[in-house]
């Protein structure tokens, strides 16, 4: 019986209009992310990993920046704790994302929360919070939000894995000097442009970009979390100043 229920649930999920919408929005960026996945696949094999190791890493770890940080360390035979600590630091931005996602997730049991968390790559998080700026309060709304989320993440998982496995298979015939991976940066840039709809968001982007360059010398890509913290702190400060200062109130009343 419970198996039948599970099948009906999955069928309902696929039929949900928000599932399709999530997949549609993700499909605009997945070619860029796929180029990234392709080059990650190539990088794994070129570093000296075996094909089976590369396949396992792609299918299980499912985190491009963490993989790229770990690949040279594995090749150099670094101690395991160093590799894991590095990966943890490179992934710290996901901890920030999980804080943001918490109220959207807590209505589900632990296993589903962990499963959805596992699938939350950068753009899955960004597209989801762009579509839903508040967590749903009723059951139908929650179902719609999770359907949108899974439509995006499942397409992302499938296209990333296809590209990454292709990269592993064709590692020796894909030229790394072409810079195909730059398509991933362009995908992020397109989404960032679509988010830049208010002054404070644009400020957040400029501050984060500048801070990430200024703090680039930090190890383990910690410049990214530092940049997010700086941008969030500064935009909040500006938001509070403009909402509480007498000058802003005057402007508002005229």
């Amino acid at each position: 019986m419970s198996q039948l229920n599970a099948i009906t649930n999955i069928r309902n999920l696929f039929k949900h209009p928000e599932f399709r919408l999530g997949a549609t929005h993700m499909s605009a960026v997945s070619p860029g992310l796929a180029a990234w996945g392709l080059m990650t696949g190539v990088a794994m094999v070129n570093s000296g990993m075996s094909v089976w190791e590369a396949i396992a890493m792609s299918l299980l770890v499912f985190a491009g920046s963490s993989q790229l940080a770990a690949i040279p360390l594995i090749a150099a035979g670094a101690p395991a704790w160093v590799i894991l600590a590095t990966s943890f630091c490179v992934n710290l931005r996901f901890v920030v994302f999980s804080a943001h996602m918490r109220p959207y997730m807590m209505h589900m049991p632990l296993f589903k929360r962990l499963f959805n968390g596992y699938l939350t790559a950068d753009l899955s998080y960004v597209l989801f919070t762009k579509r839903f700026d508040k967590p749903a309060s009723d059951e139908a709304g929650q179902r719609a939000q999770i359907a949108y989320f899974q439509g995006g993440t499942m397409l992302n998982w499938a296209s990333w894995q296809t590209a990454s496995l292709t990269g592993i298979a064709l590692a020796h015939s894909i030229p790394t000097t072409w810079g195909l991976g730059f398509a991933g940066i362009l995908a992020l840039a397109g989404v960032a442009s679509s988010l830049a709809s208010s002054t404070l968001r644009r400020v957040s982007a400029v501050v984060a970009g500048a801070a990430a360059v200024a703090a680039f010398a930090l190890p383990f890509k910690l410049n990214i979390v530092v940049a997010i913290a700086a941008a969030v702190a500064l935009t909040m400060l500006m938001e509070n100043m403009s909402s509480t200062s007498p000058a802003a109130k005057d402007k508002g009343s005229k």
Binding site: R93, H100, Y125, R201
Partner: peptide, 22 residues
């Protein structure tokens, strides 16, 4: 909670900019 709404675009910019100008 208020501040986190500026996190998505900050995270994207923090990844993009160094990859373009460095």
């Amino acid at each position: 909670e208020q501040g986190l709404k500026y996190a998505p675009i900050a995270a994207l910019a923090a990844v993009i900019v160094p990859e373009v100008v460095m």
